[in-house]
Design a protein around this nucleic acid. Structure first.
Lengths: 184, 184
DNA sequence: CCTCATAAATAATACATGTTATATAATACA
DNA sequence: TGTATTATATAACATGTATTATTTATGAGG
């Protein structure tokens, strides 16, 4: 048999980069094939259909997101830095942000679910000590900051135009302080 | 000449209801024609193309949104009721919310622009008196609440599942209080 | 009553996309 | 060396959408 020229990884890489750089609408079988310089066959031999490829791309995007956030979180200011990182993700990785957070989500039933899904338990414990507040109050600060951050992030991602990093940083700080003050 | 059976208004109504009930993806020429029980010709005789129909539908959606919010705003609690109304819009008019706020926006360049676009000057003046705060501080409260509200609204609109009205009302209240407290 | 302007229907065209059927050719292995 | 396997290409098919060309027939005005 002829040796394999196209790998599953190549297809995934090209699809992911298309999603990242041009938006998921551009992740169509023809574009992937053209980019690689092959026919559509290899794509269908490695993926059942385009839907299953999409799931895989979303998985890769989620990994990318996690590492994007992770590398920007600072141990001394977990919540603020995480908030800023999320806004940066919306601004500089707009297409991936839309793919991950502006389509169907997992199906949240309460804000507590949001915390369970996005929140970092360790951070909560740490913050609880630092702010001298019980964990449930820190959790509430956490949830409210996630919501506020999501508001800023979606506005940036859908607004087209740019809002200066300093301006968004400033308003995130203010919100964070407001939520802490509320719990004191 | 034969008398006009299909009017521009009929087409707009059908398109708007499709957008509202099934999402804008369903606003395609064939669906409109089927719904009315006519061919595609009338649509093209009243609208240059589907893109111009879309702009008209968005205009109608914006009017609908304004009246939706307007009928729910209470004079004694303008900001809170406006926030709740926006969340209700995201929850009960999800398709229109997505059409208006989760696609391309007008192109905001600062949070001040957000205020200019969404804010209500009269409300600011009124609140300034009520809270005994200078207008620029009220404006900041306004902006932050819009952002927070938008965070809640998008999570509800994209989350698929439901969050109880009381729960979202409660968290909006808290955020509002937090932002006021911050400015005092 | 005729005729013509035109609203609407019918039907064709163009194009994008997903998917599948068939052909080709490279190579592992007998 | 020959053959069977299979990676990939070529090309077809199905479907959905926008758009346009052509036809039909209605009713206002002469």
């Amino acid at each position: 048999m002829p040796k394999q020229r196209i790998t599953k990884q190549m297809i995934l890489d090209v699809a992911f980069n298309l999603a990242r750089e041009k938006g998921y609408e551009q992740v169509v079988v023809k574009n992937i094939a053209d980019e690689i310089g092959c026919s559509v066959q290899p794509i269908y031999s490695y993926f059942e259909n385009m839907e299953s490829l999409k799931e895989t791309v979303i998985g890769a995007a989620m990994q990318f997101y996690n590492s994007f956030i992770y590398t920007r979180v600072q141990k001394d200011s977990i919540l603020e830095s995480m908030a800023k990182a999320n806004v940066a993700f919306a601004k500089y990785e707009t297409n991936l942000f839309k793919l991950l957070f502006l389509q169907k989500l997992n199906g949240l039933n309460s804000f507590n679910d949001i915390y369970e899904w996005m929140g970092d338990k360790q951070a909560t414990a740490q913050l609880s000590k630092k702010l001298e507040l019980p964990e449930d109050k820190v959790k509430e600060i956490y949830i409210m900051l996630i919501i506020f951050t999501h508001g800023v992030a979606t506005m940036i991602a859908t607004g087209g135009a740019t809002i200066a990093d300093e301006e968004s940083a400033e308003i995130l700080e203010k919100a964070y302080n407001a939520f802490i003050k509320l719990q004191k």
